[in-house]
Amino acid sequence: MEKVNIAAESREGIGVKGALSKIRAEKKVPAVIYGGHKEPVSVTVTVKDLDKIVKAGKNTLVEIALGKENELALVKEIQYHAVTDNPIHADFQRVSMKDKMDVIVPLKLEGTPADVANYGAIIEHIMREIEVRALVSAIPHEIVLDITPMTINKGIVAGEVKLPEGVELLTDPEAPVVHLMIPKEEEAPAPVAADAAAAQPESSSTKGKKDEEGNLTKNAAAAPAKDAAKK
Rank of each mutant, 00 (worst) to 15 (best):
L50M: 06
Y34K: 02
E187T: 12
K68E: 10
A31I: 10
V32L: 00
H37Q: 14
N153R: 09
V161P: 08
S10K: 12
A220L: 13
Q200M: 15
K231I: 10
K207Q: 11
D115E: 11
K226Q: 12
L170F: 01
G120R: 06
L169R: 00
L74I: 02
E131G: 01
K226T: 12
E2G: 04
G67A: 04
E124H: 08
A25M: 02
E63H: 15
K210Q: 13
S21D: 09
K154C: 09
D227T: 12
A65T: 08
V45A: 05
G15R: 07
G15L: 06
K76H: 09
A90D: 08
K184C: 01
V43A: 05
A223G: 00
N219I: 13
G120Y: 09
A199S: 12
N219P: 00
A117V: 01
L216I: 13
G15T: 07
A56H: 06
I182K: 07
I88S: 12
I23E: 00
I156P: 05
A19H: 06
M127F: 11
V41C: 05
I143A: 01
P113L: 04
E71W: 07
Y34V: 00
H125R: 10
N86R: 14
L135W: 06
A223F: 07
L180N: 00
K27N: 13
V62A: 07
V132R: 03
A7L: 05
H141G: 04
E165P: 08
T171Q: 03
N5F: 15
V43I: 14
A193D: 11
A221I: 13
E110L: 03
I53Y: 03
I78H: 01
E160I: 06
E131Y: 09
V41T: 11
D85S: 13
A197T: 10
E12L: 06
L72M: 14
E12S: 03
K162G: 04
M127P: 05
V75S: 03
T217C: 09
E186H: 08
A138F: 11
G67N: 05
A7T: 14
D51S: 01
M101R: 12
K210N: 09
I122Y: 06
D172C: 02
V136C: 07
K3Q: 15
A175T: 11
V144C: 01
Y119N: 02
I156A: 10
E186L: 07
K27C: 03
E187S: 09
D211Q: 15
G15A: 07
V116W: 03
T60D: 02
S204L: 14
E186R: 07
A199K: 15
E124K: 10
E187K: 15
M1C: 14
P201W: 12
K226N: 08
G120V: 09
G35W: 08
V144A: 02
Q200L: 15
V75P: 03
H81I: 03
H125M: 05
I64W: 03
E213R: 15
V32Y: 00
T46V: 01
K230V: 08
T84V: 07
I104T: 14
G18V: 07
K52I: 00
P106L: 02
E12Q: 06
